[in-house]
Design a protein around this nucleic acid. Structure first.
Lengths: 201, 201
DNA sequence: TTTAATTGACCGGCGGGTCGGTCAAAAATA
DNA sequence: TATTTTTGACCGACCCGCCGGTCAATTAAA
């Protein structure tokens, strides 16, 4: 019925996008391959032409998600010079992100969190840990710059970086749970103000 | 083999405790009733004398968890008067908690998060939202006091409360993922300092 | 002995993954 | 160009192991 696709990698990507949506909605265990197939508009068997297993599909979805997220943040930071402003931009970038096309992928994050922590899921956990480690270093280097420029007080920059990332995740999580009532914009704004005031010399 | 338990509710509690441990380790979908039974040292069928279904068991485990957690925090706050110190105690209470018997239950939290957000899990989500709403109000009232006493600057206290709770969750989450390397003590301490400095008049 | 509690073998459905068949399109041939 | 052959992407019926929940039998308590 549908014409055959010539470009393998494009179709793989198409399946991945559908999978992200379904995983985000139902989680790993509750997602049926048949459902993913339906969402992608293909037969179940076809998925296995592109992915070895459900598990592989899930973790590839994670990779795509992380990568797109990283690119998005990077782009926002690119033409901000002042470390203080960089921190603010970084924090506020989240609220924009949550109103972008990422909104539908957001639920996936918690699935990944849960999944990566289960006993025996060392591969996923390692990927996760690595991702956060990179984020922390990124923030740390902004903070270090700020301290050097005497715009921030001296501090344990790694711990503060960890705190900032952690807090972002937490606010994100709260918003996920209660998208309508949780005041994410205000909470982020307050957070940015408090962090900057609290860190200033 | 196991001593016969006379008290029905005591046995129910015993099963619940075992279930919490198993759910924390494997999640809802990956936990087998046989495994819970084994962990509790009883036969699988017996569980169904005390709980209607796996689902009911899971959500009762959640209730127990939340309740014990609330009691623990409450106890810490009871003889602190100064709002500023209350905030600090509240924040630092977490690090103590994570070194207490709660440590083994901690993973359960993320399972609950993930589960409560799945499509169709309205019951769980509602319970979750309610819990956080209560927490937010609790913190808000401390902040309101502080503002009244001119110890904190004027602010959107609800948003700040949401921010604080969210951040706590986020730090907790990060720690869950990387218990050995994530500097939870320092991050919490920095967070408390920054928040208090940032909120002070 | 009667009643209550406990148990684990068993059942049924469910879903991940397989595999032989199909067919559109590309390649080869005329 | 028209026709035949080959390819491999696509599919979904089927297989089979797994696990939540049941219940007849067993054990303990009254």
């Amino acid at each position: 019925m549908s014409p055959k696709v010539v470009d393998k990698s494009e179709k793989k990507n198409h399946i991945l996008k559908a999978a992200i949506r379904v995983f985000a909605e139902s989680g790993l265990a509750n997602t049926k391959m048949a459902h993913v197939a339906q969402a992608a508009g293909i037969g179940k068997g076809t998925i296995y032409e592109y992915f070895k297993s459900k598990d592989e599909l899930f973790w590839m979805a994670f990779e795509v998600f992380v990568e797109e997220m990283g690119v998005l943040i990077e782009r926002k930071l690119i033409d901000v010079e002042d470390p203080v402003e960089q921190i603010r931009v970084y924090i506020m970038a989240w609220s924009e992100m949550l109103n972008s096309e990422f909104r539908e992928f957001a639920n996936l994050m918690i699935e990944i969190w849960a999944e990566s922590m289960r006993k025996g899921q060392d591969k996923g956990l390692a990927a996760m840990t690595e991702m956060y480690y990179q984020y922390r270093l990124q923030i740390k280097s902004i903070l270090d710059q700020g301290v050097l420029q005497k715009k921030f007080r001296p501090m344990n920059t790694l711990a503060v970086a960890a705190m900032i990332i952690g807090s972002m995740d937490g606010l994100f999580l709260q918003w996920l749970m209660d998208k309508d009532l949780f005041p994410i914009e205000e909470a982020l704004k307050e957070f940015a103000d408090i962090v900057i005031t609290g860190l200033s010399e």
